[in-house]
Design a protein around this nucleic acid. Structure first.
Lengths: 218, 218
DNA sequence: CGGGTCCTTGAGTAGTCTCAACGGCGGTGG
DNA sequence: CCACCGCCGTTGAGACTACTCAAGGACCCG
């Protein structure tokens, strides 16, 4: 149970967070962790594995808002809002650190920088959402997929979860479709185009990007 | 210079905010107020008029992230982040209340609820972005436009800026297109469809919705 | 070995885009 | 006061992107 994951959550100078942790919980892949509209008394931090935040319409259409990597708080808005605006589902088997909401809240309030850090996390969350909006509204299929891969790669590198030209990548084409607003079939087609252009290739849970500069040029 | 606008910004119990205001500034319509990447030392609150937050690509494509109404803080993330992730432009002539960033920050930090309120605003900002993502990724043109109108109407009603079946609506079809990820031409077509279906009609800066329930059903 | 999930590919279609022309309207300047 | 001009809205024809539906094959897990 390394402290590294906590560091990455933005609460950098607080090694004593560990004492706050209520417990640790493990879940299998493809399990819904939180539902939209939930009002939980617990704040979860992803300790290991991948997950994603999403919203769904009644008729089954789904939109993935963002992917969550180890270190991410998966229900940060619950610190400020009573009801969660999105659902969360695990992608791989995950383990979570559980914090009691009120205890975490009083801990944060004890020092001003901590509250500020929480606000910073929240602000970068909405900045990230802005990026996604630009993708969905104004970019082509290839651009959306390329940008999605680049954003995940940069997150992986930031946390030192990967470095080389090959990255762990447990998303299926269905997840990519739901994140980019496309259809699985069209994602598949676009992906083969990108592969033929030697820009990226995905297989068996791994993404390889031979020339990351070429990908960024899109 | 009523206090009502400040109330709506979430800092509900703080009438003394007014003393913090550095100055008040007026700008004409269609003026860029802040650029993406700006790092300002001032926090602006929209006091009168309409504006919008947006991002643009190099080749001129534009995506509107949200519309700003009187009472909105237009660069809230600057409290937490150094560089702004989006640009802001006025839609109508506007007047702004200007706060010095550091002064506002120390004011907020003086009391815990205030910091918490700022975090709440930030959280609802990203919840709103989630709504937009669902629109852009998974909804049809008519659904996007209807939902956009409904969200603006609900914001107008919340702030008591309008009530009746007729609402002020200074957006052009170009703005609607840039907010919904569509083309101005297609927005026009969809709008006439909606008008023929007696769901809504727009003319000359006013939006009329005869049956708001019917619109919500979409 | 079976069943399910995922990927690939195909053919036809629907939704949206592009380009273009035209008319209304408001603002501007003569 | 009027002519002009630019912006906006409308409409049309055609093209293109991405969707739908479907079938087959690969892989994984039980």
């Amino acid at each position: 149970l390394s402290i590294a994951a906590y560091r990455d959550a933005g609460d950098r100078c607080a090694n004593d967070v560990e004492a706050l942790r209520t417990c640790c919980r493990s879940l299998p892949a493809r399990r819904v962790i939180l539902y939209e509209g939930d009002t939980a008394n617990e704040i979860y931090q992803l300790f290991d594995g991948w997950a994603f935040r999403y919203k769904a319409t009644r008729d089954g259409r789904r939109q993935i808002l963002s992917f969550l990597l180890p270190g991410d708080l998966i229900d940060l808005p619950l610190l400020h809002l009573n009801r969660l605006g999105h659902a969360v589902k695990s992608l791989t088997p995950v383990s979570l650190c559980v914090f009691a909401r009120d205890r975490l809240s009083t801990y944060l309030c004890a020092r001003m920088e901590r509250v500020h850090n929480a606000g910073t996390l929240c602000a970068s969350l909405s900045a990230e959402a802005g990026e996604s909006l630009l993708d969905l509204g104004r970019r082509s299929a290839a651009e959306r997929i390329a940008h999605l891969c680049l954003r995940i790669i940069s997150k992986l590198r930031d946390r030192q979860l990967a470095s080389g030209p090959v990255y762990p990548f447990p998303l299926t084409q269905i997840h990519i479709a739901d994140a980019t607003g496309l259809t699985p079939a069209h994602v598949g087609r676009t992906l083969t185009e990108l592969r033929l252009a030697r820009l990226l290739s995905m297989q068996r849970g791994w993404l390889t990007v031979p020339d990351i500069g070429a990908l960024q040029r899109i």
